[in-house]
Design a protein around this nucleic acid. Structure first.
Length: 638
RNA sequence: GCUGCUGUAGCUCAGUGGUAGAGCACGUCCUUGGUAAGGACGGGGUCGUGGGUUCAAGUCCCACCAGCAGCUCCA
């Protein structure tokens, strides 16, 4: 009689029984909740016998792994439902994804959102029938023969490892090639919902047939499903495209797809962010330049963009000569560098540029401010000698972290990408550069992930990723070492020994694109920006016309104190004015009536707070002024 | 770029072949009020663009443009 070890350390006799029976033995409730088992670290069906094994963990919907099994099984259930509705549908591939699953289906008739209910109804029937999932195994050759008429499944077999190919059956005759594992029976499937349908290429290859990808989500309980759907609703409410339109911050127009129009209030946020960005860069010893948007075609041949980036560029002609609209700032920066002689004494030379670049993105990829055809890069190029690389990288990392924190992002990580197969420059210089990047990260004791072979062809790079309040990850900053551009442009500096040498060029961006970053900020804060970034920081709300005069006095004091404010002197009641201000996400409201006018106070109401407080005008001006200067995330009256 | 869906008032949307609708916003008037939307009246639309079918098209068909979801892409 052998014993198995459970996750809590206890041991239990279990010979010749299945994992499912073991679960029953541990407790009937576990037996009922069990969806799969983890035997010696391997996730398997509950029907797997446990002989001579050391460790068993029974998985339920509460475990991430159990949930994954459940979602995969749910994909099969959906596949059966779809096949029963459209018998000609051919199944391709149905994996789990974050929060759910999808199934790629080859079916000429389009599946429409109206059909989801029908599919869900059929799925519910399958779940109710509680049919067991049954695993069948056969040798590869036999499986290939069995599925000879199905090119998709044949392809899946060819991509699978091992000599034994498995199939899963449930219900009446529904069978699918699958590695498994699965829940013991369809009744164990949790709460599900079909979410969407979209096209997807077979193998992600645009030359292959477009399949229909039906997305679903599945959770152990109805409650968790509802919570998930609520989270999606929340994310939808934070959509920067919706908020930007509602609050009159920016717009897009048919006349310029992918080109953002910034409105007055949006420009205030923009300019506040730029002012701050400049002040930090000045402090870190950067100078700033501005180079033209349209430059002679020849320049782009020289820079290599003509050969490597032409598809994404815009072109024009001036006096019969070809010009290109810049997709990057570096060639212009190189011309500035070239305009005079340089000495090693100037190094490191840090030159920033808020460069407006244009990239012709494919029509289907545009997305609000996140993906546009015209954007402002917060670019900079650092010219230095090889010994200075590490110190300069450290400087960029410090500057970058400082800026992220100020904007309210504390959760970030770094990835290092190393030499790709296709590269230019000697192994020696790659090693120096990569060591410099790694050295800087180690020196700063920063954890980082390595992406081997993911570097640019001209040099290794570091990427900065942040997480927003919904835990979504965004790549913002990047540091790229470039050995190509200085050579192509023949950039030199005079070294100590009076010889001319080629400088190292470091490209770096902190926020990446100002447009995109504004979008990320909006979604991070749900439009409720910290005070220093708010287009309107204070709105004065007189109780009635009788206090309009005092409201005007308060307003002028606010303006004098450098705070952006408005007065709502419409003939609405105070409750309506407050509701309106909330709707417009104004962070501070000053309610003023006869009482306040008499005592030189204002009744301060903070966006989202239930109560208000009467404070002396001079005092609140000081508090708000300090909050803005310190760029605080929160606003408190204490 | 590919697949599917969508396009009606400033915004959000209803309108399945027979004279264009609602709520919010906007304007005027009434109301002068104490903490999350007081009332009345009014202005506003060649229904994305261009073709076609029909006695008749916002509505049906085709093309184009733009947006949305996804795929591919983002050296």
């Amino acid at each position: 009689m052998s014993k198995v070890k459970l996750p809590d350390g206890s041991e239990i006799a279990a010979n010749g029984i299945t994992a499912g029976q073991l679960a029953e033995q541990i407790g009937p409730r576990l037996g009922k909740a069990a969806v799969a088992a983890k035997i010696n670290g391997q996730i398997t069906d509950l029907s797997t016998p446990i002989n001579d094994v050391a460790e068993v963990k029974i998985l339920t919907g509460k475990d991430a792994e159990g949930m994954d099994v459940m979602r995969h099984s749910c994909a099969h259930i959906m596949a059966e439902a779809i096949c029963s509705i459209w018998p000609e549908a051919k199944l391709v591939y149905g994996p789990t994804v974050e929060d759910g699953f999808y199934y790629d289906i080859d079916l000429d008739e389009p599946i429409r959102p109206e059909d989801f209910e029908k599919i869900e109804k059929k799925m519910a029937e399958i779940v109710k029938a509680d049919e067991p999932f049954v695993r069948k195994e056969m040798p590869r050759a036999e499986a290939l023969k069995k599925l000879a008429n199905d090119k998709y499944k044949t392809d899946n077999i060819n991509r699978a490892d091992g000599d034994v190919i498995s199939f899963y059956t449930h219900g009446e005759g529904f069978e699918d090639l699958c590695r498994g594992p699965h829940i013991p029976s369809t009744g164990r499937c949790g709460a599900f919902k079909i979410m969407s349908v979209a096209g997807a290429y077979w193998h992600g290859d645009p030359t292959q047939k477009m399949l229909q990808r039906v997305y679903g989500t599945c959770w152990p309980t109805k409650k968790e499903l509802d919570e998930h759907l609520n989270r999606l609703e929340e994310a939808k409410k934070r959509d920067h495209r919706v908020i930007g339109k509602q609050l009159d911050w920016f717009s897009f127009h048919e006349e310029g797809p992918g080109f953002a129009f910034m409105h007055p209030k949006g420009m205030i946020i923009w300019n506040e962010a730029v002012d701050y960005w400049r002040s930090v860069h000045r402090r870190y010893g950067y100078s700033e330049i501005k180079t033209p948007i349209i430059l002679n075609e020849k320049l782009w041949h020289q820079s290599g963009h003509w050969d490597n980036y032409k598809e994404n560029m815009y072109f024009s002609e001036i006096d019969g000569v070809g010009y290109a609209v810049k997709p990057m700032n570096c060639p212009g920066g190189c011309l500035v560098y070239q305009s005079r002689k340089h000495s090693y004494r100037e190094f490191p030379m840090k030159v920033a540029e808020l460069g407006l670049v244009h990239r012709h993105e494919a029509s289907g990829v545009m997305h609000g401010l996140f993906r546009v055809r015209q954007f402002t890069q917060d670019d900079a190029h650092i010219f230095c000698n090889p010994e200075q690389i590490e110190q300069e990288i450290i400087g960029v990392i410090e500057l970058t972290f400082e800026i992220y924190r100020t904007f309210g992002f504390d959760d970030f990580h770094i990835e290092l990408s190393t030499k790709p197969q296709k590269h230019i420059g000697s192994d020696e210089i790659w090693e120096t550069a990569t060591n410099a990047l790694e050295g800087a990260l180690k020196h700063k004791e920063i954890d980082y992930k390595v992406n081997p072979g993911d570097g640019a062809f001209y040099g290794p790079k570091i990427d900065f990723h942040i997480k927003d309040c919904l835990k979504r990850s965004w790549q913002l900053g990047t540091i790229q070492l470039d050995f190509s551009m200085p050579q192509r442009f023949g950039l030199v500096y005079t070294d100590k020994d009076n010889t001319e040498k080629t400088p190292v060029m470091i490209h770096r961006a902190v926020l990446g694109s100002f447009e995109r970053f504004l979008g990320i900020l909006i979604e991070h804060y749900g439009g409720n920006m910290p005070l220093w970034l708010c287009p309107v920081q204070v709105r004065v709300l007189p109780i009635s016309e009788k206090t309009n005069a005092y409201a005007e006095q308060v307003q002028s004091k606010l303006i004098k104190a450098g705070l952006r404010s408005e007065t709502d002197s419409t003939d609405e009641k105070i409750g309506a004015k407050i509701a309106k201000a909330h709707g417009e996400k104004v962070p501070i409201m000053f309610v003023v009536g006869p009482k306040e006018a008499e005592s030189a106070t204002v009744n301060v109401r903070i966006r989202g707070a239930e109560s208000s407080r009467t404070v002396a005008l001079n005092e609140i001006l000081k508090i708000l002024g300090n909050n803005v200067v310190d760029k605080k995330q929160e606003l408190k009256l204490e």
